[in-house]
Design a protein around this nucleic acid. Structure first.
Length: 342
DNA sequence: TCTGGGGTCCTAGGACCC
DNA sequence: TCTGGGGTCCTAGGACCC
């Protein structure tokens, strides 16, 4: 078969971009997260391999990270820099032998490639990306996106790895179902209740049981993934954003409801002003509140008509907030707006 | 002790309509 | 006493990903 899918994944992307513009950091533990102050509330976005060896991984609270690795260099998140680097990477990928490139995030993409020698294409991609950006990437090869994506894990860092249907079960059969792309803690728990623990268990699961337990779409999709099957093709259609959100974690929890209202109104106005400046209008508003102790509530309301008026959206957000229990203290406020015209 | 911020997609169930 | 079947729209909320 000459139709291959390649999954290109930049290695420790965010940390690598930072090291690129601060060469003196090469080889040192680098932690990017929050505003770069590890005494504040926030979590790690990406850590360099040197920091990962010390147990500092994405999602670890910065306060924990600094305890585990006090000598690490802590840097603030600089989205614009990563976006710019990402754009160069994606342009480089589009300039390769790939017939289609599906951007799957800042630092990863799927490529449809028609070739007899996918490994040669993969190495060529690595050379070109390194030349254009100074960044290293891993390339996974398969006959679909799932196989390619799982192969990347075996190729890290900076390697090339291939998985096809023939070696899917020998390689992955004994692994937990949750190791598969798309199976998180929630699905893993429901699978475990059906005595499905591993990828091999999933591969041999009874189809009607799966449909009964997960529905006509997700059931067969899960069972197929157990056998390394994956139908959705590499899709290079540029995607219009569906929604945009902003959220804030307060350094000091809000104890007064009047402050909660004020912060939510400000957050909403800021976001909607930006959206309006881009010429988009808002059709639905979600309000997210995280209370202490740790519970998160999300409520939404559709607007009577799409609008670009920050005040109007703020009013709706406050009305949604009023429907919630006025618990305190409040740790986090978030606003998400869905765009009109979809 | 501490738990970010940015997204997408799917499903259940109620309201309402014919 | 019995109360279909199909459809859309809406909200809540689960789940996953980087």
């Amino acid at each position: 078969v000459a139709d291959w899918v390649l999954h290109v994944d930049l290695d420790q992307f965010i940390a690598a971009v930072e090291v690129l513009r601060r060469p003196q950091l090469r080889g040192k533990p680098v932690v990017v997260g929050g505003d770069g102050d590890p005494t504040k509330r926030g979590v790690v976005s990406t850590a360099s391999y040197e920091a990962r060896e010390r147990g500092v991984r994405s999602g670890v609270p910065l306060k924990v990270a600094v305890r585990r690795c006090p000598e690490a260099v802590f840097l603030p998140v600089d989205q614009a820099a990563y976006q710019a680097a990402s754009a160069v990477v994606m342009a480089t990928l589009r300039d390769t032998a790939a017939s289609r490139v599906e951007v799957a995030g800042w630092d990863e993409a799927f490529l449809a490639v028609d070739t007899e020698d996918p490994a040669a294409v993969a190495h060529d991609i690595q050379r070109r990306v390194l030349l254009a950006t100074g960044l290293h990437c891993t390339v996974g090869i398969g006959h679909n996106k799932l196989q390619a994506k799982m192969a990347t894990g075996f190729g890290k860092p900076a390697g090339v790895y291939r998985i096809t249907s023939d070696d899917w079960l020998p390689l992955l059969g004994h692994q937990p179902a949750q190791s598969l792309w798309g199976i998180g803690p929630g699905l893993a728990k429901r699978l475990a209740a059906l005595d499905i623990a591993t990828v091999a268990d999933l591969a041999t699961a009874n189809p009607s049981t799966m449909v009964e337990a997960f529905g006509p779409n997700i059931g067969p999709w899960l069972a197929g993934m157990g056998r390394g099957r994956y139908d959705s093709p590499v899709d290079d259609t540029p995607r219009e954003p569906v929604s945009r959100s902003r959220e804030t974690t307060f350094q000091l929890d809000l104890a007064e409801w009047v402050d909660v209202r004020e912060e939510l109104a400000t957050l909403t106005r800021t976001l909607v002003s930006q959206i309006a400046a881009e010429g988009r209008s808002v059709s639905r508003v979600y309000v997210k509140v995280r209370f202490v102790p740790f519970t998160t509530v999300i409520r939404s309301r559709k607007l009577a008509a799409p609008t670009t008026d920050p005040e109007a959206v703020a009013d709706v957000a406050l009305a949604v907030l009023e429907r919630m229990e006025k618990r305190r203290p409040v740790r986090l406020l978030g606003i998400r707006t869905e765009f009109a015209g979809r």
